[in-house]
Design a binder for these strands. Structure first.
Lengths: 334, 334
DNA sequence: ATGAAAGCGCTAACAA
DNA sequence: TTGTTAGCGCTTTCAT
């Protein structure tokens, strides 16, 4: 089907040199004359020669490929994170294999296994809801967003995440400062560390003001979607204790909430104030625009790629856990 | 750094057979006894052996990898398309390398070059704005969404796209049926075939009703974003000829428009009716919910993967151009 | 049913 | 400065 691809050997023959010399020119390893270089490069260009990366990787035992495992690329926050990381990797001459797990453990494992088979140089985990029971981490790994499970071998990975506790704290404080008395909190259930931390921040802020945390104001959902945000808000407002402030641990939920509140004619921010989390672009587009906690995607992406590079090179790492500051973006819902 | 990975040879030694036999067991190529199979499989399991896919691909000259080139993964429509394709590929045991071009030609070319270097078995192009001058297509390729450039070698690619003309027609007809007199059209400029086709449909609908197309109601923008939708709508309403219906060739633009219209107190659908394109999830979330043209992502993804498979296998293809039907989803903006 | 051996395209150590 | 050569880990003839 494909016409036979041109190889090092072909180039060498045409240039009248050995394959070793051609290889040296390509990799700029010195040990060749200017004249040879010129000739070889011409032929390479002329025939649009493209080195077989598979062969190279097989030989050097490292592929210029990084695997990115992400729970849900449709989620704008993950998409942006993935995109930014991929951009930076590309600049460093890495390809990215992006794997979508749909928050399913088995898929995650299969992906990881294939990535290992491809001998990727490193892996970035933007994790979903899942606790892996002791994944074998023989590949340099960066965990983003959610704290990694306990692994025996801790030399090979690094965790990078936003300061979710502080985020939860800032969000709740904002609501308190605006005079909210009954502040609800909606989060993803399960063991997702990010949402747990936001909850910690929520409680911390309430405690500081001697405000009680009321169980009926704290809601867990199974998955993140507009619909869930809509539904849970409905439930909250149909319950006894009407909230006058709600902190949603993800913007998407807040957006769903807005729809419900508007339908019911509940005024924002007069009747109820709202804070989200992530600062996805829609928070600026909705009306009213949503107050939210911004995670610094660019900063995290930078840190991720730089640290992964170090891990791969085997150079020393400053820290094993990085906490990236967040900021509150005040808009119209508070 | 990584402890030496276990290889075929290691397995063979431990099982007391030759590497050829182990290979046969792994690939289920027959020519081994039940007993041998059992022994080999046990050892493989015990040591969690993972074949080196690079070596395999080098040998077989085909990698179980597909490249997906997409202009902007943040755009929900592209994200969904990418995700669905990737899911299906995964079921067929292919990994997907997803490349984001940011709608930049040079990046697109670099990506393609790296993909070829990785000896991917096929490529899916979800193209952006760019016309490539004769990309060398020595790899089976599916173009989605935008018609491919003219390539000499046409055996190796297939185009799959929605019926954008019909989409534009349906959208415009809907506005006409609701009594709109001055129907504006907002599209991405440049040579993007999808947007050109939607424009053709728009004109067709107007012509059928003997309605004139007015240049000042037809607007082009440079890139797709909420902000652009906002801006262009502002411009339309600050011009002489007030539109009473607007067809946006992408939902995202319509969403931006909604913001402007609400700010100005312009009533939808009383003062102006709106139709978008793509049916992204936000069209259901916005208020009012947006009438739009739905592209069948699942169907396109299916067709893409099946056809790519055929292209790779060298089996015959029914068609070289597929046009996938669209449907209008009527909501509150009309 | 099994093994020996060639070779995919490349890099790198060693020679010259 | 250049060439020769030994593999990287695998699949696949061809023997046996």
């Amino acid at each position: 089907m494909n016409k036979k691809r041109i190889t090092l050997k072909d180039i060498a023959e045409m240039a009248g040199v050995s394959i070793a010399t051609v290889s040296r020119v390509i990799n700029q390893n010195g040990r060749f004359s200017k004249e040879t270089e010129r000739r070889v490069k011409n032929i390479i260009k002329k025939f649009d020669y493209q080195p077989n990366l598979l062969a190279r990787s097989l030989r050097t035992k490292k592929a210029q490929v990084i695997g990115i495992i992400v729970p849900d690329i449709i989620n704008e926050f993950f998409a942006r994170m993935t995109l930014e990381i991929q951009k930076r990797l590309f600049e460093l001459n890495y390809m990215a294999i992006i794997c979508n797990t749909n928050e399913t453990t088995s898929v995650e494992e299969e992906h990881l296994s294939m990535l290992k088979g491809q001998r990727v140089s490193g892996v970035v985990f933007i994790t979903g809801d899942l606790i892996k029971n002791q994944i074998q981490l023989d590949v340099p790994t960066i965990y983003i967003d959610r704290k990694p499970p306990n692994t025996r071998d801790s030399r090979n990975y690094v965790f990078i995440g936003s300061d979710n506790i502080q985020g939860g704290y800032l969000a709740t404080q904002e609501l308190i400062n605006k005079g909210c008395q009954r502040i609800a909190f909606v989060r993803l259930g399960g063991d997702v560390s990010t949402h747990k931390d936001r909850f910690i921040g929520y409680k911390k802020a309430l405690n500081e003001c001697k405000m009680p945390t009321m169980d009926c104001l704290i809601r867990k959902i199974d998955n993140v979607s507009y619909k869930q945000g809509y539904k849970i808000t409905k439930e909250l407002f149909e319950s006894d204790l009407l909230p006058d402030g709600i902190f949603y641990s993800t913007d998407i939920l807040a957006l769903g909430a807005l729809k419900y509140l508007k339908e019911q004619g509940i005024k924002i921010p007069e009747d109820v104030r709202i804070v989200g989390f992530d600062d996805i672009s829609l928070t600026q587009l909705s009306s009213p625009e949503i107050t939210t906690i911004r995670q610094s995607v660019d900063y995290i992406a930078d840190l991720t790629v730089n640290t992964l590079q170090k891990l791969i090179d085997g150079s020393s790492i400053d820290q094993k856990y990085y906490t990236v500051p967040v900021e509150i973006i005040r808009r119209k819902t508070t």
